[in-house]
């Protein structure tokens, strides 16, 4: 069986500063893989390389067996990759519903449609997704005025709309209350297992990470220092020394 995501020997530097140094890992279907590490460890760089926003200096990324190194984000998306951002990125001038509709329009190649208005396209499908993530009551409000937690959910809906095989989630629960975090992660886990989606996410909240991740990889100064099940990582000495510190009592 092919791996969903294979990252092999990734290097990326910015003006002489090496942000990522030879990171390799992979991800299977239905798996929730957490990427953790202190600030500046290279997590976001990894995400942006996988997503296609950045081109690596060396190394390769394969998604579903296809080499995507250097491909543009919109092409990578077409392979079945959904993404959420650390700072939410939605279309603030559009309503919640329209935001999700946009994904359907894009995924079905309807962006050049000029003879029908958006208000009649993919409404049902988009509403269904909003129900899945639990923001259906907000459907008519512009994203520009939405509460942060709701925005995160809208982003999740958008990431799910093109039936992705792989979800890249940069801090999916940042800025939420603890209760909301756990609910949302439970939801993500449920969706992932139901739809056989692989999820790669970063997270600062270790409660969330250790409660929900199937597997964890740890980055420090651009180097992958450990990977394994939550229990293995928790017991790793180096991880404890560098990162977890007092957490893993």
């Amino acid at each position: 069986m092919t791996k969903l995501l294979q990252v092999d020997g990734l290097y990326k530097s910015f003006g002489g500063v090496e942000a990522v140094k030879g990171v390799s890992f992979d991800l299977e279907e239905g798996e929730l893989l957490a990427m953790i590490g202190p600030n500046g460890a290279g997590k976001s760089t990894c995400f942006n390389v996988i997503n296609g926003q950045l081109t690596p200096d060396r190394g390769s990324v394969k998604i579903l067996g296809q080499d995507t190194t250097g491909m543009k984000p919109h092409n990578i998306c077409a392979l079945g990759v959904g993404r959420t951002f650390q700072v939410t990125a939605t279309f603030p001038s559009m309503t919640v519903l329209e935001n999700v509709q946009m994904v359907f329009l894009s995924a079905r190649g309807r962006l050049s449609t000029v003879h029908r208005t958006v208000s009649r396209l993919f409404v049902e499908q988009a509403m269904d997704l909003l129900r899945v993530v639990g923001v259906e009551s907000q459907w008519a409000r512009p994203c520009g005025i939405l509460a942060y937690g709701d925005l995160k959910r809208v982003e999740l809906a958008m990431a799910l709309a093109n039936r992705p095989r792989l979800l890249l989630m940069d801090e999916p629960t940042a800025g939420m209350g603890i209760k909301e975090r756990l609910t949302l992660m439970k939801l993500i886990g449920k969706i992932a297992s139901e739809r056989a989606i692989g999820v790669l996410f970063t997270e600062h909240d270790m409660d969330v990470v250790f409660a929900h991740a199937d597997r964890i990889i740890v980055l420090n100064h651009g180097v992958l220092i450990a990977q394994g099940s939550p229990a293995e990582v928790r017991d790793n000495h180096e991880v404890r020394r560098i990162y977890l510190g007092s957490y893993a009592r």
Partner: peptide, 24 residues
Amino acid sequence: FTPFGYAMRACRDSRLRAAAIGIH
């Protein structure tokens, strides 16, 4: 109000998001 116009507006609103959902 058609997808054509919405796609253009999406690119204005957020290039990042637009690219992430597969908009060129």
